Computed example of a mutant assay.
Amino acid sequence: MDAFSGCTAHLAPVGTADVVRDESWDEADKAERGEAGYTGPGSETDAHVAVYREAPPAGDEAVRPACIQSGDVQAVVLHTRKTAEPATVPFHQTVILQHQLLG
């Protein structure tokens, strides 16, 4: 049986708290797309990216998941870090690079 049910807010890895949308990603993404009617790679017509963060309280190891949907391919990006949430910038860079590879 395939345990992966797709890219949704219910994708929290076993042993972690629930995940919630990463609002900082959503705001930056909206601002980026709003400039000059952007429709290039990463636009809604091309692929879908959903970035999450672990809802408090996080356990001993914090997890930042992201899902990228491009055509019939679903990619899951996970960053983990003990005792603290994974750094935002390296995580967002990883998501952007993975998205560019799939786009």
Rank of each mutant, 00 (worst) to 15 (best):
Y52G: 06
G37E: 12
D26N: 14
T80P: 01
R64Y: 06
D46C: 08
A75L: 15
L11T: 00
A36K: 15
T94Y: 03
E32I: 08
E85C: 00
S5T: 14
F91P: 03
G42H: 05
T94F: 07
A12Y: 00
L102F: 06
E85M: 14
D18C: 00
D22P: 03
P90Q: 03
G103K: 08
R64K: 09
V77N: 05
H99L: 13
L78Q: 08
A84T: 08
A50D: 11
G40S: 14
C7L: 04
A75C: 06
T88L: 06
E23N: 10
D22E: 15
A3R: 15
H99V: 01
T39R: 12
H79T: 08
G15Q: 12
V14T: 12
L11N: 02
A58S: 10
C67D: 07
A84N: 01
E54M: 11
P56Q: 11
C67P: 03
E54Y: 03
E23K: 11
G40Y: 07
Q93V: 06
P57W: 00
P86C: 08
T94W: 04
G42E: 12
H79P: 00
Y52Q: 05
Q93F: 02
P65F: 10
A28I: 08
H99E: 06
V89T: 13
T8P: 03
Q100N: 05
R33I: 09
V77G: 06
P13Y: 09
D22R: 08
T45L: 05
D18I: 00
V51N: 07
M1F: 06
Q69F: 09
P56V: 09
V89W: 04
H48N: 13
A50W: 12
G6K: 10
A75R: 13
V63I: 12
